[in-house]
Amino acid sequence: MNVFRLAGDMTHLLSIIILLLKIRATKSCTGISLKTQELYVIVFLTRYLDLFTKYISFYNTTMKLVFLGTSISIVWYMRYHKVVKQTYNKDQDTFRHYFLAIPCFLLALLIHHEFTVIEVLWTFSIYLEAVAILPQLVLLQRSRNIDNLTGNYVFLLGAYRALYLVNWVYRYFTENHLVRWIPWLSGLVQTTLYADFFYYYIKSWKNNEKLQLPA
């Protein structure tokens, strides 16, 4: 474990906590894409299949359970909570997320480290996570005003994978140059997708004005 990866995990955890707080405190999920949240549940389920078969560390197991639990409860709130589900922008959150999942699965069948169920599904989760934010970014462009909590949530979510990129550089130089193309390239794509959001987020923060994404 290095400081970059720990910072990445904490940033990721913070983003999810902020989203859960927003939903629970305001009893509203306005501006949040249910499609992206459902993709994250699939990402965690397919990535943590070896949760009970392979013990890495107490930290690793705990964080996996926290990520699974929080992401599933967010989807539950948005789908079934009587008050929250009324605030879901159903008619704006129209991104066909299966158009993202299917190519990722096919790509995982083609490009992977080894052809086993666990490995192919893990690879699928890496590819899927790279594009899972797209429905959320599209929804942000459609919703006129973005509330601060939602903006902070997306920013921290993008920042976590950027910290993971730094972690991978650090590990490359400190762990006998182990090459890991699949997470590296996917992580690069994932972080790049946030580029314009980062630009507008930092601009709005500097000019102390409301975050607004161009349509």
Binding site: R5, D9, H12, D50, K54, I56, S57, N60, M63, K64, F67, H112, H113, E114, E119, W122, Y164, N167, L178, V179, R180, W181, P183
Partner: peptide, 10 residues
């Protein structure tokens, strides 16, 4: 492809 990397990350 490289060796199957250890899955110690989240």
């Amino acid at each position: 492809s490289s060796s199957k990397d250890v899955k110690d990350e989240l």
